[in-house]
Amino acid sequence: MSILQVSTSPVLTPIARSPGYWSGVVRRVSRDPVAMTALFVIVALILMAVFASSIAPADPFKSAMLRRLKPIGTPGFPLGADELGRDMLSRLIYGARLSLLMGLTPVPIAFIIGSALGITAGYVGGLTNTLIMRTIDVFYAFPSVLLAVALSGALGAGLTNALVSITLVFIPPIARVAESVTTQVRSLDYIDAARASGAGAFTIIRVHVLGNVLGPIFVYATGLVSVSMILASGLSFLGLGVRPPEPEWGLMLNTLRTAIYNQPLVAALPGAMIFITSIAFNVLADGLRTAMDVKS
């Protein structure tokens, strides 16, 4: 993480190297049973999405009118069947692919763009800060769901456009967090010491700012994964994201809503998946925050 690469030179006194900051964070997180459970759930969900074709017991697209809305536990349909008689278990497993894609893609992209904007605003300050942050405030004025729907509507329905609109929605909050953390770090003496040694802004940001601000921004962004999934589900629900018959949890929740009185448990299953996934990401973010907070 530093420009000053470690190379062992025979001339130098051998030094006892302390374990780095991140290895400490990893050690503390790994001792947190709640966070580790959440991590386990996330890994399991990802594996499920990757290996969906080999795990799923049936074809998620194969419908049959006779098997419509079977309850949970029906032989051959362990989690029942949906309104078109498709196997729920298989659809939930395949649904993880699109749902995780929709949940996970916007966050890293927004993380990169938002951090770049926020760190620039925070480090440079002055007029640049005002320009960037006030522009961002305009986006901030709208509730995130409304903004996502409006952007998605303007761009037109479809998976890519839904992803783009969610990404755009996440840039302002990430930039805000990045700006406030950077402003804080910027005021510390070690930044002044680095400036006094003649280093340029780019080098200072790379060596002294990034390492100290990316952690907190990352934690914040992790928490956004759940929001992203819910937004994506919402867009699919409104017909702005994934289109039928593709299995996606939000869309499944939408199409099953008519069955809420006949088969409430089956209808609730996609919602349960969204809930579990977002909770897992939130809990992991909390665990990371705690692990990074420790001073010594």
Partner: peptide, 9 residues
Amino acid sequence: YASLNPRLT
């Protein structure tokens, strides 16, 4: 403390 980058050796 504030004049040393906590992430650097």
